[in-house]
């Protein structure tokens, strides 16, 4: 259904959050567009117990990458490291190129790739709060630990699945 703009505002059920695409999670288990940042968690290639917390601020494009223990990423120079690059690439898979470009407000070609986004970043490295993003990731994981429910949840009537392709 393609409601007119006017009709869109007069519907109780309508898709507001654009659908996300499935992707492999092994390398980048978590990425999100939230709190004014593209932020995520990237698995370490060498140590299974270590992850990197990476983030890029929308608008200013300042970026950061550290381990979850707050040690700066060794690969981070004046340009984004491979963890940041992986995060951008996976964000493009998950949310689509256009949405990531729009969110970061980066200058990039209309039909470009993740590499174009990385090239278009105009900020430099800046240490950011790792704990905040890492907590978001832990909270994300905690959803899978929550028990299910057999309650009717009448409020879910506002959220019908709308995904058939």
């Amino acid at each position: 259904m393609n409601p007119e703009p006017d009709e869109f505002s007069r519907r109780s059920v309508t898709r507001v959050v654009p659908p996300v695409n499935p992707r492999k999670l092994a390398k980048v288990p978590f990425v999100e567009l939230a709190d004014g940042r593209l932020q995520g968690v990237v698995s370490s290639g060498s140590d299974i117990a270590r992850v990197y917390v990476s983030s890029i601020v929308a608008d200013s494009h300042e970026f950061s990458c550290s381990t979850n223990n707050n040690r700066p990423c060794g690969g981070l120079g004046s340009r984004p490291c491979k963890h940041l690059q992986s995060m951008v690439a996976e964000a493009v898979v998950q949310y689509g190129y256009a949405r990531v470009v729009r969110f970061l407000r980066v200058e990039a070609p209309a039909d470009g790739t993740a590499t174009d986004i990385v090239h278009g970043l105009k900020g430099g490295p800046r240490r950011a709060q790792v704990a905040e993003v890492f907590t978001r990731f832990l909270r994300h994981l905690a959803y899978l630990e929550q028990p299910g429910t057999n309650e009717p949840l009448p409020d879910m009537q506002w959220f019908p699945a709308m995904g058939a392709r």
Partner: peptide, 15 residues
């Protein structure tokens, strides 16, 4: 009647 069951998930689990 209706029977409802629900599970918590995250956005990357779909389909």
């Amino acid at each position: 009647v209706r029977a409802s069951v629900a599970a918590s998930k995250v956005d990357t689990i779909l389909g």
